[in-house]
Design a binder for these strands. Structure first.
Lengths: 203, 203
DNA sequence: CAGAGACTAGACAGATCTGTCTGGTAACGT
DNA sequence: ACGTTACCAGACAGATCTGTCTAGTCTCTG
């Protein structure tokens, strides 16, 4: 099969599959995974049921694809932020803070409803479920990213501080959904200022 | 109706209602709320369906009761911890750290599956739903508790630091479920040491 | 003893969910 | 022109979910 055909209506990138994934992502994120039925996704995506089950043999496959796309999306955002930071001549510490500023902005957007991975994990408690593996992959990526930036920023204990920054990320996602996200802007910056220079020696 | 009768099999404290609440709490927490059907609660509690719907007119009422009990339970635990701390002559700061140590222990228990309130909120995104109100009440209590202890511990900015400690709590709950809870013991203590003496002036 | 109230057992209705299957349309490549 | 393939429309099966209802038991109270 020619690549030209694939680009137009190939199995891997057909417009139906895209529509399914986009509507599923919006619905899963906004209303939860278990509450959204396949019928609703089909109706809102304007897709036949057979087409849906042709692209995704089971609902779980769609859920997994949804998380994989979220993962890729976040990596893309971070990559662009880092490039912008590098081309501006920023330090690694400034690049790291830019990532958190972006997360705070995102948490303040009206559609924000928490971290898709944390929310999915709450709905899939079984550690052996593929959803949990997707969540773990995303977390491993973020941990490595933090460690790398902290090392470049000459943090005295990059792995340790990275673990702390993951905690900051998680609490930011939870708090922006459950508390006042505007207040968390100040709180998070304060927290980062207390965290980013290493453990205290004067306490 | 005499209180004696109530104690034995009264409407407010019948053993059937207790069994329903206990099994529902265990199942909701371990496997999620939407995934647990009323039939399963009824079967595992050994209760007739009519009895269930007599005590809880709808499943949502049971969910709400489940969260209210969790709230009461946590308040009880904290109250006992504070009393123990006071009778040991501990400072407010030590009492606060004891609460976090207890949360870390809890997060390291094998049955730990995250914070029941955060998990419930993930399953009930609608801000107008009673579940969200129960979550907000619990968070308001915890914020007030932190502020009180920090004020007693002479923290220079108790409200601000309290907001940060809520973030620490949330990330602890998420992380103990999704990451290695044993590692979070060290990480959290490190984080608290960086946080608890106020914002840095040397950075 | 008689009545009230909590409880059990389980059928039942109606909706919804996942997944399958049939049948038809339209665009493409050979 | 023909076959392939992606797609649409919708019926259907089987399970499961919430909630209602009937009928009967048991225990305590008056």
């Amino acid at each position: 099969m020619s690549t030209e055909t694939q680009a137009r209506r190939g199995t891997a990138a057909g417009p139906a599959r895209r529509r399914i994934l986009d509507t599923a992502a919006a619905l899963f994120y906004a209303e939860g995974i278990h509450t959204i039925g396949v019928d609703r996704i089909i109706a809102e995506a304007g897709v036949a049921k057979a087409t849906f089950y042709n692209h995704f043999p089971a609902k779980d496959e769609l859920v997994h694809a949804y998380l994989c796309e979220q993962y890729a999306f976040q990596r893309g955002v971070v990559d662009r932020l880092r490039e912008a930071s590098v081309s501006s001549g920023n330090t690694a510490r400034e690049a790291l803070l830019a990532i958190y500023d972006h997360m705070i902005d995102y948490g303040n957007s009206p559609a924000f409803r928490g971290c898709p991975f944390i929310n999915a994990a709450a709905e899939y408690p079984d550690p052996a479920h593929p959803v949990r593996a997707a969540v773990a992959a995303h977390r491993a990526w973020f941990r490595a990213l933090m460690t790398e930036l902290l090392t470049a920023a000459d943090d005295p204990t990059p792995e340790r501080t990275a673990d702390i920054l993951i905690m900051v990320r998680d609490s930011l996602a939870v708090g922006c959904d459950l508390d006042d996200p505007a207040a968390l802007r100040t709180t998070t910056r304060d927290l980062l200022s207390r965290v980013l220079a290493g453990p205290r020696t004067d306490a």
